[in-house]
Design a protein around this nucleic acid. Structure first.
Length: 448
DNA sequence: CGCTGTTTAGGATTCC
DNA sequence: GGAATCCTAAACAGCG
C-alpha cells in the first residue's frame, strides 16, 4: 500500500488540477495561482455552521438540562450541571457555622474548587431544601440561572437574590455576604450588563441581563468561562447587526484599539471588550465531564458556532478552541464522515484548508468519501458559498437582543450563534484529524 | 438609611 | 512558580 506524504498528494492534486484547469498555468516563479476563492480563508470570517445546517431554525430554545422543574413554577437545580467552570461543590460557609461543610452533606464529598473531578458529588442533593450544602455553582451560574428562570430578558438584583434564596436553601441561611459576591460578579463579569431602569419604572437599581455578546457562555445550564474574546465573532458580525440598532453603537476604544459597545443610556456601565486572554488551555479542556457534555451529535448537527471559532483562529486568538474537548466529537465525526456522504458537516470540513496541501486533501477527502470528481468538488464549493451567503444575509437580518420580544431569552436567540470554544490545539487536531491522522492511503488512494 | 453598584485587594484552588 | 479563575471581604459613592 503506497503511503504518500502531503507534498506528494499536493503534487498529484496539482497535476490533476492542471489537467482540469489548464488556464491555471504556473507563472515564471513556478507558483501556481490557484483560484483565491478556494484557497482564501476569508470565507471563514463569515462562515457559520448554521449555514451548513440550514434546517436549524433560529431561536431554537435551549432548555437547561440540569434544571429541574420545581413545583413552584421556578426551575430549581438539583444537581450541578456538567461543565460549570466554577462548580465548586465545596461547602464554603459564608458566615454560617452550621453549614460548615461537606462532611455534613453526607454524600457530598469534597470536590476540587474550580475544576472538575470528573464526578458529580451532589448528584442527588436537593439544594432547594438542603441548607448544609453549598450549591456547586459559581455565582455567575447562579445569576444566569436566575435570569433564565425569570423568563424575562432582564432581571433586578433583588429578583436574583430572591430566586437564589428560593431555590438554594443554603443561601437562605447563609449570611448576606454572598449578595455582595453576586453584586461583585454582576459588576465585574463582562457577561452581565446592566440595563438602566426607565424613568417611568418605579423601583431601585437597574436591571441585569446577559450580554448578548456573551450569551454563548451560558450553555446547557452552565456558565462557561474562558470564552473567546468579544473581538471575534461578536464584533465582526454583530457589529454590522448592532450598528443598525440605535441602542448599540460600536465604538473604538482609543486605548485598547478594540471595539466595544456603548450603553444606550449615558452613565450606565458597560465593560469594554477587553480580551484578557491567556495562552494556556483552560482547565475545562481537561474536563471529562465537559467532554461528555458536548454532545457529538450536536457538533455534527451544527449546534455550535464554528464562526466564532474560526474568527478567533483567524484573528490569532488561539484560545478560542478552549472549552470543548473535541476529541469525543472527532472520533465520532470521523466515523460519521465515513458513512454520511451527503452530510453537511462533511462539506464544512472539506472547506477547511488554507493551502495547496490542505486543498488537495480536502478534495481527496471528498472524492474518497463521495466518489466525486473535481467538477463535483467545485460545484459543491460553489453551492456552499451560496449557502453561506444566503445564511449570512439571514444572519445579519436578525435583530439581536435589544430588539427581541420580552419573552425571548438571550441564549435562545443566540443559541444558533452559540460557540462551544475549542482549544486551538484541539482545533488543529480537528484539521489534522482529517488530514493527517487518517492513513494517507485512505485519503488519496481513491483519487490517485 | 438601606440598597445598589463599582472597585480593590487578597486568598484558595487548579492547571501548565 | 506563574497564570487563571473564583470567592470573599471591604470601602466607597450614588440613589430612592
Amino acid at each position: 500500500m503506497p503511503v504518500l506524504t502531503s507534498p506528494e498528494i499536493a503534487k498529484k492534486f496539482k497535476e490533476k488540477w492542471m489537467l482540469l484547469h489548464p488556464e491555471d498555468q504556473e507563472d515564471a516563479g513556478g507558483a501556481v495561482s490557484f483560484d483565491d476563492s478556494l484557497t482564501s480563508l476569508h470565507w471563514l470570517q463569515n462562515f457559520s455552521i448554521v449555514s451548513a445546517a440550514p434546517d436549524r431554525a433560529p431561536g431554537f430554545g435551549w432548555r437547561p438540562q440540569q434544571l429541574v422543574h420545581a413545583p413552584g413554577g421556578t426551575e430549581s437545580p438539583s444537581s450541578p450541571p456538567a461543565g460549570d467552570t466554577a462548580a465548586s461543590g465545596t461547602a464554603h460557609t459564608p458566615g454560617n457555622p452550621a453549614a460548615s461543610c461537606s462532611k455534613l452533606a453526607g454524600a457530598s464529598a469534597y470536590t476540587p474548587m474550580y475544576g472538575h473531578s470528573g464526578a458529580q458529588p451532589h448528584e442527588e442533593v436537593d439544594y432547594k431544601t438542603n441548607p448544609h450544602v453549598k450549591p456547586p455553582y459559581s455565582y455567575a451560574t447562579l445569576i444566569c440561572m436566575a435570569m433564565q428562570a425569570s423568563k424575562k430578558t432582564k432581571i433586578t438584583l433583588s429578583a436574583i437574590y430572591s430566586w437564589i434564596t428560593e431555590n438554594f436553601c443554603y443561601y437562605r441561611h447563609a449570611e448576606p455576604s454572598w449578595q455582595n459576591s453576586i453584586r461583585h460578579n454582576l459588576s465585574l463579569n463582562k457577561c452581565f450588563m446592566k440595563v438602566p431602569r426607565q424613568k417611568d419604572e418605579p423601583g431601585k437599581g437597574g436591571f441585569w441581563q446577559i450580554d448578548p455578546q456573551y450569551a454563548d457562555m451560558f450553555v446547557n445550564g452552565v456558565f462557561k468561562r474562558r470564552r473567546m474574546p468579544a473581538t471575534n465573532f461578536s464584533t465582526q458580525r454583530q457589529n454590522r447587526i448592532l450598528s443598525s440598532c440605535s441602542s448599540y453603537s460600536p465604538q473604538r476604544n482609543p486605548q485598547t484599539g478594540m471595539d466595544h459597545y456603548q450603553e444606550p443610556v449615558a452613565g450606565s456601565k458597560r465593560k469594554q471588550a477587553c480580551p484578557k486572554r491567556g495562552g494556556k488551555l483552560g482547565r475545562m479542556s481537561q474536563s471529562p465531564l465537559l467532554a461528555s457534555e458536548i454532545k457529538t451529535s450536536d457538533v455534527l448537527r451544527g449546534d455550535f458556532d464554528l464562526a466564532s471559532v474560526f474568527d478567533d483562529v483567524l484573528s490569532g486568538n488561539g484560545s478560542t478552541f478552549e472549552d470543548l474537548d473535541i476529541n469525543t466529537a472527532l472520533s465520532s465525526l470521523g466515523c460519521e464522515m465515513e458513512v454520511s456522504s451527503q452530510n453537511q458537516h462533511v462539506s464544512t470540513v472539506s472547506k477547511w484548508y488554507s493551502n495547496e496541501d490542505e486543498q488537495a486533501c480536502a478534495y481527496l477527502e471528498m472524492s474518497s468519501m463521495m466518489g466525486c470528481n473535481m467538477e463535483d468538488f467545485q460545484r459543491q464549493q460553489q453551492q456552499q458559498q451560496q449557502q453561506i451567503q444566503t445564511h449570512q444575509q439571514y444572519y445579519e437580518g436578525l435583530a439581536l437582543f435589544s430588539d427581541l420580544p420580552q419573552q425571548q431569552q438571550p441564549w435562545e436567540v443566540k443559541e444558533e450563534a452559540q460557540a462551544i470554544p475549542l482549544s486551538l490545539d484541539q482545533g488543529y487536531g480537528l484539521c489534522e484529524g482529517f488530514f493527517s491522522e487518517m492513513p494517507m492511503w485512505e485519503r488519496g488512494e481513491v483519487f490517485l
